[in-house]
């Protein structure tokens, strides 16, 4: 399973990406990722919030050739998505934001 997260927008407007291949994860991490994915409601997409400069999140989950895509906006994230975003962001290797 591949999980890709892209964050774009925000005041600065630059894009940051993270990608996790579950095959490369330690068993405990893999189980944790599955729990986070199970808890996130990826089928619901609340409309963008009012205002401006909110982050846009584009999430892709690829399993067995099937890809599920979700777009969500900071301030109006689907239930359970924030912990998944935080976990993926924390795993970003601290490279430049491009």
């Amino acid at each position: 399973m591949l999980v890709r997260l892209q964050r774009s927008g925000g005041l600065a407007g630059f894009t940051v990406r993270s990608e996790v291949d579950s095959a490369q994860l330690a068993p405990a991490d893999r189980a944790h990722l599955e729990r986070l994915l199970g808890a996130a409601d990826l089928s619901s997409t609340p409309p963008p919030t009012r205002g401006a400069d909110r982050f846009q999140y584009d999430l892709e989950v690829e399993r067995g050739g099937r890809v599920q895509r979700t777009t969500a906006f900071d301030g109006a994230l689907p239930p359970g998505l924030q912990p998944l975003i935080d976990w993926l962001a924390a795993r970003r290797a601290g490279g430049p934001p491009r």
Partner: peptide
């Protein structure tokens, strides 16, 4: 690492110290 307008307030983050 962001600041935004939420339709009513101007909201400011402290930055991550790395990019912002």
């Amino acid at each position: 690492d962001n600041a935004f307008w939420n339709g009513a307030r101007m909201v400011f983050g402290d930055g991550d110290g790395y990019t912002l």
